[in-house]
Design a protein around this nucleic acid. Structure first.
Lengths: 110, 110
DNA sequence: GACTAATATGAGCATATACGCATATAGTTG
DNA sequence: CAACTATATGCGTATATGCTCATATTAGTC
């Protein structure tokens, strides 16, 4: 069940690509904005403060990576988080960073 | 306890940077090689098939990000995984990718 | 069909970063 | 201290990618 075999080169590239998708602040901002549910592009543009073109591009990247899902409704396009593992991923990274800072703080403080 | 506040711009950059560190196949290969414990640079060079210079650089990136720890012993330098959350991160991403492919396979298969 | 609104995309520029080569540094041994 | 080993780093280059501006596309309204 739990495989511990080393990943193939191809698999490593896929995993790396996955991380790369999450390695942009604007994309993280979009993901965060979608934590409370589906939103259309304009809303996301407003909430993130990005330009329409840029937001659209980033949404495309996230959608192609299957992180987000896309639903068209008339003139508008609604995006939503499609990969639930994103929540955990963000939690994990945030937790890990917090620990790091706590340690840092301890060292600096005492 | 569980904070769901939107992260600040600075925090988002940190998280993004964290993901960026993991967004290189060679670095993932190094991490994977260290799953079974501490190893020195030469061993890692052999096991990953990279050049010494490149491996050394990537190890530096991973160490500065506190993903790896560094221990010097005479002429050799030993690296080891310092951030346990890495295991879960990789598991999560791999699991998510597997699911994706399963779905894909289902669609293609019938 | 003309007009408007919402979203996507092409082109160009600026920046980041991975890689290879050569060389520098740190530590060991004679 | 000279020679050697293990690791790190400076530099140049190639490539990738994010951003902006302008424009294209898609869909609804009169």
């Amino acid at each position: 069940m739990a495989k511990k075999l080393p990943l193939s080169d191809e698999a490593l590239e896929l995993v790396a690509r996955r991380f790369a998708v999450l390695a942009e602040p604007m994309r993280l901002r979009l993901i965060q904005a979608l934590f409370d549910g589906e939103k259309n592009v304009n809303t996301l543009v407003e909430e993130t403060g990005g330009t329409q073109a840029n937001v659209s591009r980033h949404l495309q990247v996230l959608t192609q990576a299957h992180v987000l899902g896309r639903r068209k409704e008339g003139l508008q396009v609604f995006y939503a988080i499609a990969d639930p593992s994103i929540y955990r991923l963000c939690e994990l990274v945030c937790g890990s960073l917090e620990k790091q800072f706590t340690k840092h703080a301890e060292v600096l403080g005492g």
